[in-house]
Nucleic acid binder design. Structure first.
Lengths: 218, 218
DNA sequence: ATATAATGTGTATTTTTTACACTATTAAAT
DNA sequence: ATTTAATAGTGTAAAAAATACACATTATAT
């Protein structure tokens, strides 16, 4: 009746204009020395989402992050010792919130590093497939999800938002048309506050009006 | 290292203008006498998709059907004996192709029956949640997937296609606008054939041009 | 004062979406 | 032969959304 299984988590963030994903260098058989999504076994008495939160917490120092389930992978040949089912998630975190910029070494993992999503090496197991799934889902649901805002601070500029759209869609967008569209969405609140600490004209800050967002999409 | 887990499958079809889902009446603890999605344990040496295909075959007599994975459910309390992880799929089948209109009784299952999706009782386990997920996914991906065509014969009329869109979206569509939109998709082939056996004006038949569809969406 | 770096804005055009009602065709019934 | 019943099939005008495109404005640093 017992079930050993793992969860793996694509942790995405946005930094310096790029969409990044956090990967581990494995220190354990199989795929020792390969890069892989953070992941581990789910404890017997632990809910699956708790396990994902635990793993994400170990890597980022953050709790209660945004999570979406991507897929269950259960191929008989994905692990040399036999089938190990894994449930893959994706998490979205704000770069500035991340506490441990580099995850301390454990016995099964050497280091963690942010990779630009367009520059990811061949990964352990079926993790490249999972990454593709994650990026595809992010892209497909872009207009119906709060995902872009999970990658930004609570108050953000339209340029930051546009950069995230561009990173997720993989194409450049026209500034004026983008702003027009965003203002028509109906769930962005224009604040009377402005960026600080920049050596050029400070941009206006916006925030997501979650109530209005939910009204539109539920 | 061993992993017992199940797969469950929402089998959808379209009949008499309604979207239908095939459900089993359980004859086994837990949830004896409740209706549930068809599902069962995955054999130790069996791929997960094989298992889904096997279950769908037992219920419909069909092989190589359209499948999409929906979610993994692993709540500690979903089964009274402890966690049983299940991976939920949805399948789409053509009603006219289904061989066994009623599934023979087995020791764990009393009968199978098509339910109108808008008239489904309270189901075993978390199966109502899974049904909601399935319907939501069907709706959200309607315009990027071959799903509507999986529910229709190879050659179909635009009215049939419109009925499927309406059933999935849960709203009525305007005939002229719908036809205009379908003709602009670029992947419907207008045939020089017409319906037969109807006692009124026979409608033109169409079919999906899969090559063109794939070009657009890959 | 000047240079720098990014912000913020409008209009014309095209495309897409929406609203809306009647004639055409076929088979069956009389 | 005519009528009835049932569904197929069609066009246009209006509104809304998407696109293409360039320059003046503002804040800071020197």
């Amino acid at each position: 009746m017992l079930s050993f299984f793992t969860v793996d988590c694509l942790i995405f963030t946005f930094h310096e204009g790029k969409l990044k994903v956090l990967l581990n260098e494995r220190n354990e058989y199989p795929y020792r020395d390969w890069w892989a999504m953070p992941g581990y076994f789910v404890d017997k008495q632990e809910e699956m989402e708790e396990a994902v939160n635990r793993i994400a917490y170990e890597h980022t120092g953050l709790k209660n992050i945004y999570l979406e389930q991507l897929a269950a992978m259960a191929g008989l040949k994905r692990h040399p010792e036999g089938r190990i089912l894994t449930v893959a998630y994706m998490a979205l975190v704000r770069y500035d919130d991340v506490k441990n910029k580099v995850k301390p070494v454990t016995n099964y993992m050497r280091q963690a590093k942010w990779f630009d999503v367009s520059d990811v090496p061949e990964l352990a197991f079926d993790h490249n497939d999972i990454l593709k799934l994650g990026l595809k889902k992010l892209k497909r649901n872009l207009n119906y999800s709060t995902a872009p805002f999970e990658l930004l601070p609570e108050k953000f500029t339209l340029t930051q938002l546009q950069q995230i759209y561009e990173a997720i869609l993989g194409e450049m967008l026209d500034k004026r048309n983008f702003r027009k569209r965003m203002n028509n969405l109906g769930y962005l609140k224009e604040l009377e506050e402005f960026q600080t600490g920049v050596s050029y004209r400070a941009a206006r800050l916006y925030k997501l009006d979650k109530r209005k967002f939910l009204k539109l999409f539920t």
